[in-house]
């Protein structure tokens, strides 16, 4: 189902849910609950992600070729074999990188306009 002809830039900007799922998978495959926990931790719970939102997003991301199901199990002894694991595809990695660069460029603009006083204080 992965669309190998998709131009990564056509998929930008990403929705918060899709961006955070890609970000959660950036350091390796995870199952649904693992993704949900990581998104909550990364966003301080600001991106609410129930089962419907999570698996609806996963369905669309699989269809767009951003992620794929993984056959590997990180630790089979501690793992429920019924769980499905997901990992980033090549396209997903490209899209995530482009989105991060896009957001970083916007942060630069905000910084140039002195809107990031918090960050500047932190650096000094």
């Amino acid at each position: 189902m992965a669309n190998t002809l998709t131009n990564p830039e056509d998929l930008l900007p990403l929705t918060p849910a899709v961006f955070n799922i890609l970000l959660a998978l950036a350091d390796g495959e995870k199952h649904g609950y693992g993704i949900m926990q990581e998104v909550e931790a990364n966003t301080n719970g600001q991106i609410p992600m129930g089962p419907g939102t999570l698996y609806g997003s996963i369905k669309r991301m699989l269809k767009a070729g951003l992620i794929k199901e993984s056959d590997e199990r990180p630790d089979p002894s501690m793992d429920d074999q019924r769980r499905k694991y997901y990992q980033l595809s090549g396209l997903g990695q490209q899209v995530l990188r482009l989105e991060v660069e896009r957001l970083a460029a916007q942060v630069q603009v905000a910084r140039a306009k002195n809107l990031l006083t918090y960050g500047q204080e932190g650096r000094t």
């Binding site: 649904g32 609950y33 089962p51 419907g52 698996y55 609806g56 996963i58």
Partner: peptide, 21 residues
């Protein structure tokens, strides 16, 4: 209440996720 094809594919995982939660 979900569409049949979505339910068929994801209801098991959604239920397990809800149980974990």
């Amino acid at each position: 209440l979900y569409p049949a094809d979505f339910r068929q594919e994801y209801s098991g995982q959604m239920l397990q996720l809800f149980r974990d939660c």
